[in-house]
Design a protein around this nucleic acid. Structure first.
Lengths: 201, 201
DNA sequence: ATAAAAATCGACCAACGCGTCAGTTTAGTC
DNA sequence: GACTAAACTGACGCGTTGGTCGATTTTTAT
C-alpha cells in the first residue's frame, strides 16, 4: 500500500497542474488568439517555465484540444439532461435556450475559443468538432420541429431557428462581463422570452 | 496634361491590384486565421511574389486594416441610409435587421475577420474599431428604445435586443453558403420576422 | 532611341517560437 | 542514508516568416 501514496500524489498533482495550465491557456487564447500566445506566455502567467508545460502536455495542440473537449463535455451533459426530460416542446426549447445562454456566459473565454479557433485544430480534430456541433444544432432543430408538429410554433424552417438561437447566445461572449450590467440569468431569460414569443403559433 | 495620363494609369492599376490583394487576403484570413496566412500565401494565391504585395502595401497590418475599414464603410453607409429614413421604429428596426443580415451573408469572409480578429490590430486600431462597433450597436439600441417609447415594443432593455440581434445576424457567417439551402434574402426575412414578433408589445 | 518612372524579382536577414534534451533538484520509499 | 521516480531547469537547434534591399525588367513620355 505504500507505493500508492506516490501514485496518488502524482495523479492529483498532475490533474491539478493540468487544470491550471488549461485555464490559463484558455484565458490567454481567448484574449489574444491561439497563435499570438506562446507556450512561454502560458507558463510564465503561472510562474512556470516553458518546460513545465511540456512536462504535462505533449504540445500546444494538446492543450487546445483539451479545451475543446472539456467545453463539449460540459455542454453536452447539460443538453442531454434537458433533451431527455418528458416535457412539451416549447418548455424544452425554452430550457435549451436558457441553458446554452448561461453556459456561454459562464465561460466566455472557452466559448470564444470554441467558436472562433476551430481552424487551429488538426484536420481530424476539426472533423470531430464539426460533427459535435452538428449534433448540438440538431437538438435545437428537432425540438423546434416537434413544436411545429404539435402546433405550438410557427412553421419557420427549424434550421433557421437553430442557427438564430445559437448565434444569439454565442455572441454574448463578446459583450458579457460578470458583475457589470445585467446578470447572466437576466440576459438568458430575456433571450428565451424573445425567441419563444417570436415563434409561437 | 501628358503627365496626368501616367498618374491616372498608375492610380487605376494600383487600385485594381490592391483590391485583388485585399480580396485574396480576406479569403485566406477568414479561412485559416490571420496568423496562419503568410504574405507568400496571399501573393502566390494570385500568382505574384511576396515583393509585389510589399510594393502595394506597407506591411501585413495595412492589408488587414484596409479590410476592416472597407467593411465598416459599407455597413455604415447602409445603416446611415436607413436611420435617416422618416419611418416608424418598428419598420426601421426591421429594415436594420434585414440589411445587416444581408450584409453579413454577402461577405461572410469579411464578417468573420471583422468579428473574430480584432485582436490582431494595433492598440489604437482596436480602439477605433471598438468605437465603431459601439456606434453600430447604438443605432439598434436607439431604434428599439424609440419603439418602446412609442408603445410598439415590449419593455426589454434595448442593450439586450441590440446584442441579440447583432449576434443572431453575425453568426450566420459560419453556416451560410451561397447557392445552397435557403437564400440570404429568405434567411434575413425569417430573422426579421422572429425578432419583430418576439418584441412587439 | 532614350531617359525616367513603375513594377517585379529573388536573395537575404533577424526575430521568434516550438519542441527537445541532458542534466539537476525534490520528495517519497526502503 | 541510499535509492528512485517525479518534477523541473536552461540552453539550444531548427524551421518559419515578416520585412528589406539592390538589381532587373517593363512601361510610358519625349
Amino acid at each position: 500500500m505504500t507505493t500508492n501514496l506516490r501514485e496518488e500524489l502524482k495523479a492529483k498533482k498532475q490533474a491539478y497542474v493540468q487544470d491550471e495550465i488549461i485555464s490559463a491557456a484558455a484565458r490567454l487564447f481567448a484574449e489574444r488568439g491561439i497563435r499570438a500566445v506562446t507556450i512561454d506566455d502560458i507558463a510564465s502567467s503561472l510562474g512556470y517555465t516553458k518546460s513545465v508545460v511540456y512536462y504535462y502536455f505533449k504540445n500546444k495542440n494538446q492543450v487546445l484540444w483539451e479545451i475543446f473537449n472539456r467545453i463539449h463535455e460540459t455542454w453536452m451533459a447539460d443538453m442531454q439532461a434537458i433533451v431527455e426530460r418528458d416535457i412539451p416542446p416549447d418548455e424544452k426549447l425554452a430550457a435549451l435556450i436558457r441553458q446554452h445562454a448561461l453556459n456561454v456566459m459562464d465561460r466566455t473565454e472557452w466559448t470564444a475559443i470554441f467558436f472562433r479557433d476551430q481552424s487551429e485544430l488538426t484536420e481530424s480534430q476539426q472533423a470531430t468538432v464539426s460533427e459535435r456541433k452538428r449534433t448540438f444544432d440538431r437538438n435545437f432543430r428537432d425540438t423546434y420541429a416537434a413544436g411545429v408538429e404539435a402546433g405550438l410554433f410557427k412553421d419557420i424552417p427549424p434550421v433557421i431557428m437553430a442557427i438564430g438561437i445559437v448565434g444569439m447566445c454565442n455572441q454574448t461572449h463578446v459583450w458579457f462581463k460578470k458583475d457589470k450590467g445585467l446578470s447572466a440569468a437576466e440576459i438568458a431569460d430575456h433571450f428565451t422570452a424573445i425567441i419563444l414569443d417570436g415563434c409561437r403559433a
